[in-house]
Design a binder for these strands. Structure first.
Lengths: 225, 225
DNA sequence: ATACGAATTAACCAGCTCGTTCAAAGTTCT
DNA sequence: AGAACTTTGAACGAGCTGGTTAATTCGTAT
């Protein structure tokens, strides 16, 4: 009986199936992303990933070679999506101060709503960036990652509202640090100090203060609002 | 010959040996700390830890029960050491501004020179703080973790140099965010944007700016230096 | 239609990893 | 002296895990 069902099932599923290489790969990547983000590279299980896929383990190896290959592709896709999101953020029609405000807000919000990306970056840092280093795609992708900030800074200095010695890279570092930490250390921070800062109101306050902090860092003291 | 050496070795080491439970445990914890910090909980190998110990795997299980028990103790020790370091940082004889400066500098430097602690916290956040949650020691330990900042804030407000609405917890969040990110994301950041910020000079600049940023956040606008 | 490469399936395997077990002996405390 | 604790050393095994083998079906260019 059990056997009969099994045989039936088999013949049915063997019967008709459509090819969908792109879809299968996307599906695998989506599942793998959350699994790696949840458990890390060594913590993730290929069998588990395969099980949550609409396809089989064999297909993962067929398309991605091995575990590390899959992880590398997951990383690349994650970075690609982030850059894609940043792309259509046009700041050129805004004043330097407004543009910087908008960029900081965007970064804070983006990180906040993409914890999986944050977790992948954390994991990659645990590995000392060993896999990002291998990816020439990510290198290419991020080459122009601070272009926007460089433009803002140039305009801000020209307009006389930004300090002359403000460094776009350091500015990016500050925005990243505050926005990243907010997500990356949420678990330990709220366990130790309570989750007051992670309530809806707490996050709103934090967001405003991050923007204010960044602006104060870039804008001349006498030009402050 | 090989056999003979082995027998000799055995009889010698079997001969006289001192008991040193505390020392053995410390040794295990030290090795386990760097292994877990380097490879994460799932990435670390008990055999590898045992091999780098002056004792045997058997003793690890004797003292710590299982892998997670060992990991928990490693975490606890790491947090305990940090709090111990903070303890003899007496800020009460300094002015509020000086005290805040000193605390920010200390945090930045401490994190900078304790990457293993940072990595353990990163790893623990990957686990959503599942193991810190289990430790009542760490809860007790960190209960008074922001006491110092509360004192500083109280004194700063009383003296009229700090903003009235400055929140000690948020201040701690800011200091932590900037100091933590500096270490935690060093690998990916310098791979993508170059290691200019991580040169000796870059770090000195960063440190000064972190302090400045924190001060600007707490101190009244008209009281700024 | 048919040949051929791409896509898919299911079962399988070798090695690793955590944790255990056994047998013995030395040390410290009381 | 005796009880309780600490240390040694080696082997082992059950289950998991990454990766593979072999066979089958689909899409399509000729």
């Amino acid at each position: 009986m059990g056997e009969l069902d099994l045989e039936l099932q088999k013949s049915i599923s063997r019967g008709g199936w459509k090819q969908d290489p792109a879809g299968v790969q996307l599906n695998i990547l989506a599942v793998a992303t959350s699994e790696f983000a949840a458990n890390g590279l060594s913590g993730a299980r290929m069998d588990e990933i395969a099980a949550k896929t609409r396809t089989s383990k064999r297909m993962i190896y067929y398309y991605f070679g091995d575990k590390e290959g899959l992880y590398r592709r997951v990383l690349e896709e994650a970075y690609r999506k982030v850059r894609e999101g940043e792309r259509d953020l046009d700041l050129d029609h805004l004043s330097p101060v407004e543009a910087l405000t908008r960029l900081a807000e965007f970064t804070f919000d983006h990180h906040s709503s993409n914890p999986n990306f944050i977790r992948l970056v954390m994991i990659e840092n645990i590995h000392h960036g060993a896999y990002i280093r291998q990816s020439e795609l990510i290198g290419r992708l991020n080459a122009g990652a601070i272009e926007k900030l460089e433009t803002i800074c140039r305009r801000g200095k020209k307009a006389g509202v930004f300090r002359e010695d403000v460094d776009p890279l350091e500015l990016h570092w500050q925005i990243s640090a505050l926005s990243f930490f907010n997500v990356s250390n949420r678990a330990t921070f709220s366990l130790i100090f309570g989750d007051r800062l992670y309530s809806a109101g707490g996050q709103e306050t934090l967001r405003q203060h991050v923007v204010k902090t960044v602006l104060r860092f870039a804008v001349k003291a006498d030009q402050a609002p």
